[in-house]
Design a protein around this nucleic acid. Structure first.
Length: 477
RNA sequence: GAUCCCUUCGUCUAGUGGUUAGGACUCAGGAUUUUCAUUCCUGCAACAGGGGUUCGACUCCCCUAGGGAUUGCCA
């Protein structure tokens, strides 16, 4: 069997988005599973859409998700360069070869003419295609026009009465009548190739075994097959992945919000959750397990378990899963990840022992790291009282409890949660105030809310001095 | 308009001729907890429709409908 070599080939036109992440993920786990190579190739053949810094961002986003490519820019394994704009001669060479063999031809049609024929075809409700006008040009005429400096493109000379039948790993046999396939431009007037030529040339030269790409490429696959055949090359396996959709079922796009990996990370989503969640959009392991890491996915991944239908991206479930990981992963790891969010919120977290306690407590309540500072605000600044908590403070019992607590705390040097717990127990007994009539006022006095974390834990986090301060403040309300 | 792809709870999905159609998220109820959150339990909720094939269809075939993608000198 041919060595597995798969590639993720994004265009540097922006940030890595969820769809790209999933494609890269499937590429990666498939390569890993079959001890193959995972190649990153940059498809920057559209100079107009190139975004400065996008290549670097794509690479860092991938790495931040734990997806490493073992071949690509800066990691040449003999198949480079891996950036298409550095491979222009190659595309030109094969385009010439296609022209030579009659599988492609020069076209000098103006944009105006193209627009016009499209308009006419639309009016007549015909398929919209190039009409082959320049196909009849003789070699001499072509030479003459080029010599005159006329702008040109090179188009594929698609057969018109053929049936393209190919096998898609996900969908099975797909048939497309060649009359439906346009004479696609493969070399643009600026001399750059289009995707259709560049991707095929590179996939062949880089010995790609499986082409994983979005389903939107399915209709143009005949063009690609035609190039393979015309050049006498063997086709790779076609693996068209189902689309990730917006809630309205349209292809996930920027118009509906920012679905970049970077944005999710900034919103406090964990790579474990993002990867896990996105993997499930179109793929499912054999078991009912939904929580898994990259290693387990490598073990279990197969194309047979990839779905055909598009998957709607549902943030609610991502939130749940993210919360799960926030609670499940090592505390120290979550503490590190939470730091930037607190810093950004302007919280002084220099007391690392306290901060660790705060995070340990806070993570039980949140689904994204971004929510953490707001929840933890009660541990770092004076409590903001809810209306009902403030009401509680006026209660006589509350005053009694607070004074009692202050006295008891004064006798202590340090306190931890178990000690606090027994102190509270004694207090409740001594004061003969029980259950929520005792605990609610205490919590309210300490954090300004009736509901929230375990009181002993709050006391431990706050420390003796802060507790005393808050109890006496409560006394004066 | 044309071509192609797709169609199980609201959403992600399991299911490959015989199942009480399973799981997860959401939602509702309950248990635990001084409270909230977590956790656990229970519940609500689906095979797009119509024809076949078959002793038997969610599963196979056809049609219809719906959705999506493509239809660029973007990828």
């Amino acid at each position: 069997m041919k060595k597995v070599r798969v590639r993720f080939a994004p265009s540097p036109t922006g940030l890595l988005h969820l769809g790209g992440l999933r494609t890269a993920l499937y590429d990666y786990v498939y390569a890993k599973k079959h001890k193959g190579d995972f190649i990153l190739r940059i498809e920057d053949t559209d100079r107009n859409r190139f975004v400065e810094g996008a290549i670097e961002n794509l690479i860092s986003s991938l790495q931040s998700m734990g997806i490493d490519f073992n071949e690509g820019p800066e990691k040449d394994n003999g198949y480079g360069p891996y950036i298409q704009s550095e491979r222009l001669e190659l595309y030109r060479k094969y385009a010439d070869q296609l022209v030579e063999s009659g599988k492609a031809y020069y076209c000098f049609c103006s944009k105006e003419r193209l627009d016009q024929i499209r308009e006419e075809q639309a009016a007549k409700k015909l398929p919209i295609q190039y009409d082959g006008f320049c196909k009849k040009l003789t070699k001499e005429e072509v030479q003459q026009k080029i010599a005159n400096g006329e702008e040109y493109v090179i188009r594929l000379n698609m057969p018109k009465d053929d049936l393209f039948t190919f096998n898609d790993v996900i969908r099975g046999e797909v048939q497309i009548d060649s009359s439906q396939v346009d004479d696609q431009v493969i070399i643009k007037s600026d001399g750059f190739p289009t995707y259709h030529l560049a991707a095929i040339v590179d996939d062949h030269l880089m010995e790609i075994s499986h082409v994983l790409r979005g389903e939107e490429w399915l209709p143009s696959t005949p063009k690609h097959i035609f190039i393979y055949e015309s050049l006498g090359w063997d086709q790779p396996e076609w693996v068209h992945l189902p689309l990730i959709l917006n809630t309205d079922k349209s292809k996930l796009s920027k118009r509906h919000g920012d679905f970049s990996v970077e944005a999710f990370v900034q919103q406090g989503y964990l790579k474990e959750a993002l990867v896990n969640f996105v993997a499930l959009l179109g793929w499912h392991p054999q078991t009912d397990d939904e929580i898994f890491d990259l290693d387990k996915m490598i073990e279990e991944f197969s194309f047979e378990r990839v779905n055909k239908a598009g998957a709607v991206f549902d943030k609610t479930k991502l939130d749940w899963m993210n919360g799960l990981y926030i609670r499940k992963l090592d505390l120290s790891h979550i503490v590190d990840l939470a730091k930037p969010f607190f810093k950004e919120a302007g919280v002084d977290i220099s007391d690392s022992t306290k901060f660790e306690h705060v995070v340990s407590c806070t993570r039980e309540y949140i689904n994204t790291l971004k929510e953490a500072p707001e929840f933890a605000q009660k541990f770092y600044s004076d409590p903001v009282f809810t209306e009902s908590a403030a009401e509680l403070m006026k209660n006589e019992d509350t005053k009694t409890i607070c004074s009692y607590m202050i006295t008891k705390l004064e006798a202590l040097e340090t306190i931890d949660a178990p000690e606090a717990k027994s102190m509270l127990k004694r207090a409740s007994k001594d004061l003969k105030i029980k259950g929520k009539h005792f605990f609610m006022p205490v919590r309210a006095a300490l954090i300004g809310e009736e509901h929230g974390p375990d009181i002993p834990l709050i006391i431990e986090i706050l420390g003796i001095e802060e507790c005393k301060k808050r109890f006496s403040n409560a006394l004066n309300m």
